[in-house]
């Protein structure tokens, strides 16, 4: 290896001190200032979702929920109430007689979390407790399907609620059925790998983040458990805003996706880096920021770690559906400008 030999002008030789060599993407770092570390790095984090919960090994939703709620707890100085839709998160945290939550928490039904949260927020307003803030949370089924009407109502009324959808792309609690957030070709119990179009069919499903943007609410963001800094920044930003807000967090599900429990964050990362899961934020109906792809990967890298896509890799030949999924990634990359054309990732 030839070390490059360059003549540097003295002023160039003195590089600006940057603290990103370590710690940019890690949870914390002993070398960076406290405020540059994540909430999760703190020994004083609230652990709003604490030990002893019954989520599966490597559960992305358990992780995403603690990330989000801890950040919101810090942002509100622990003046936070959470409303939870029925689903995995509810079931694994509150089976009688044990609760894993360490904040006031209310579960009503599968499809009404947004409306219940509206009621809690209204109560706080009428009780003159403006410091107490409200989060509604649920899975993608409880959000994009059965809870969609209440969600839209909460949005259009601009109720003072942050709704967080933990998107694991299916009804996992009931045994992995298809939701309107399930990606094309994915195998679920209701989209089996059978017939001429195995798995979930192309051309179905919906983007609730985009629909949320169309409501012109103050804040919409997508996030991922693979980027904690970005996730926490978005939650904290959302808590600084009043009115209806929506954050959708991609949370891989080892059980439903057929992935190794240790690959949860890795998969979330690959979902972003291949372009399948665009990470962006929007304010008042306009996309304002996009998280660029850092190390672009082909969609195969993401797919092949998951048994729900295993049928795409059988039979020796390249399944044409992979190209169709890649086309979705490419379209996302083009639509959101996920790859910097001038940057090294281009």
């Amino acid at each position: 290896m030839t070390p490059p030999v360059t003549t540097l002008a003295p002023e160039e030789a003195v590089q600006k001190l940057k603290y990103y060599q370590k710690g940019t993407f890690t949870v914390g770092n002993r070398l960076v200032a406290e405020e540059q570390r994540t909430v999760q790095a703190s020994q004083a984090r609230s652990n709003a979702l604490t030990c002893g919960h019954r989520a599966c090994q490597g559960c992305g939703e358990a992780l995403g929920a603690r990330y989000a709620i801890d950040a919101a707890m810090r942002a509100t100085n622990n003046n936070l109430i959470a409303v939870n839709a029925t689903g995995c998160l509810e079931v694994f945290t509150t089976p009688y007689p044990e609760s894993s939550w360490q904040l006031p928490w209310l579960h009503s039904l599968f499809g009404n979390a947004a409306a219940v949260a509206t009621g809690v927020a209204a109560a706080m307003r009428v009780k003159k407790r403006p410091e107490v803030r409200v989060i509604a949370q649920g899975g993608d089924g409880g959000t994009t399907d059965i809870g969609f009407q209440c969600l839209s109502g909460m949005f259009e009324r601009n109720d003072d609620v942050l709704y967080i959808c933990y998107d694991n792309e299916g009804y996992m609690n009931t045994g992995v059925q298809r939701s309107s957030a399930t990606p094309p070709t994915a195998r679920t119990a209701t989209t089996p790998v059978l017939g001429p179009e195995p798995g979930n069919v192309f051309g179905t499903g919906k983007s609730v983040p985009k629909i949320a943007v169309a409501h012109n609410i103050p804040y919409v963001a997508t996030a991922t458990v693979a980027d904690l800094h970005d996730l926490e920044r978005k939650v904290i930003k959302a808590m600084s805003i009043h009115g209806a807000r929506y954050i959708q967090i991609n949370v891989p599900c080892p059980l439903g996706w057929g992935s190794a429990s240790h690959d949860t964050i890795r998969l979330a990362r690959l979902a972003v880096e291949c372009g399948l899961y665009p990470i962006f934020e929007a304010e008042h109906g306009k996309v304002t920021q996009v998280r660029k792809i850092r190390r672009k990967v082909p969609v195969q890298d993401y797919l092949k770690l998951q048994r729900r896509f295993a049928h795409l890799f059988k039979g020796g030949h390249e399944d044409p559906r992979i190209a169709r999924l890649q086309a979705i990634c490419d379209a996302n990359i083009a639509e959101y400008g996920l790859v910097d054309v001038t940057g090294r990732d281009g």
Binding site: Q15, L17, K18, Y19, Q21, K22, G23, T26, V27, G28, N29, R30, L31, R37, T38, Q40, A41, N47, L49, T50, C51, H53, A55, G58, C59, G60, A62, L63, R66, L228, T264, I265
Partner: peptide
């Protein structure tokens, strides 16, 4: 300092807090 901080600390914990942060079970 910049150069020193490029070290990856291969094989030895440098207290980045990742394990503490990424555990779904605290």
């Amino acid at each position: 300092l910049y150069e020193a901080r490029r070290c990856l600390s291969c094989g030895n914990c440098f207290e980045c807090d990742n394990c503490y942060g990424v555990c779904p079970d605290n």
